[in-house]
């Protein structure tokens, strides 16, 4: 994954004690932390516990993060460790022969974590790009993304635009989104992949770690 300059800037501002930058960082990465917890099938209470630890550890460590661009990976790994900690606390795995997680054999979740980081970065970049679109574009695309997708006649009535202009405007807005520098930073490694919607779906894990 390429370094995202906006993340590097955020981390630097957080290091200077900027609460707004911290808030932005949390908003950007909360979906990553959340989705990993969901993969581990934690209860809501446990997810809150993991979240608290992850953010507190980040507050503690962020000044020492040598490569700010590695933050998403750090967050994912830390979240995974915290999920395992919570599962141990519940089941006393440590007294039942489960080794500490740095000695765990590679588990299928390791791949899941990498995938989650990629998806989270892509999602964050898409949201950042979307937030910077002109307001009419955001309104149109939001409406088109509603479920079920509205007919153009309805879009036309809701936004007060001619039916014939919706298609071309949609194309222009999406093109603008695609050309956002936010996306360039994240999509660099995935040039060959194409984006499959299936990859993006957060799936429930089938088994539990350690089973």
């Amino acid at each position: 994954m390429r370094d995202d300059p906006s993340v590097i800037a955020l981390v630097a501002r957080v290091g200077d004690g900027d609460q707004e930058a911290w808030d932005e960082l949390v908003e950007r990465y909360a979906p990553l932390v959340w989705s990993i917890c969901v993969r581990y099938r934690l209860s809501r209470q446990d997810i809150d516990d993991v979240g608290q630890s992850v953010w507190l550890l980040l507050v503690e460590q962020i000044g020492r993060l040598r490569e700010p661009a590695a933050l998403p990976g750090w967050l994912a790994t830390t979240t995974r460790h915290e999920c395992l900690r919570v599962l141990r606390a519940e089941r006393r795995y440590d007294h039942e022969g489960l080794p500490p997680d740095d000695q765990m054999p590679p588990d299928p979740f390791a791949t899941m974590i990498e995938q989650e980081v990629i998806v989270a970065e892509r999602n964050a970049a898409l949201r950042a790009a979307f937030a910077e679109l002109p307001q009419p574009c955001r309104r149109l695309l939001s409406l088109l993304m509603s479920d079920p997708p509205p007919a153009y006649a309805e879009v036309s009535a809701r936004l007060g635009v001619a039916i014939g202009s919706i298609g071309p405007t949609r194309a222009r807005c999406l093109d603008r989104l695609r050309r956002s520098p936010h996306l360039a930073a994240v999509l660099g490694d995935q040039a060959g992949d194409g984006i499959e919607v299936d990859d993006i779906e957060v799936k429930e894990p089938r088994g539990e770690p350690g089973d």
């Binding site: 979906p31 892509r122 999602n123 949201r127 993304m145 989104l177 919607v197």
Partner: peptide, 13 residues
Amino acid sequence: EVLAALQQALRAQ
């Protein structure tokens, strides 16, 4: 694809 990806990104949030 870009619209579907954006939809997923907003949904994840």
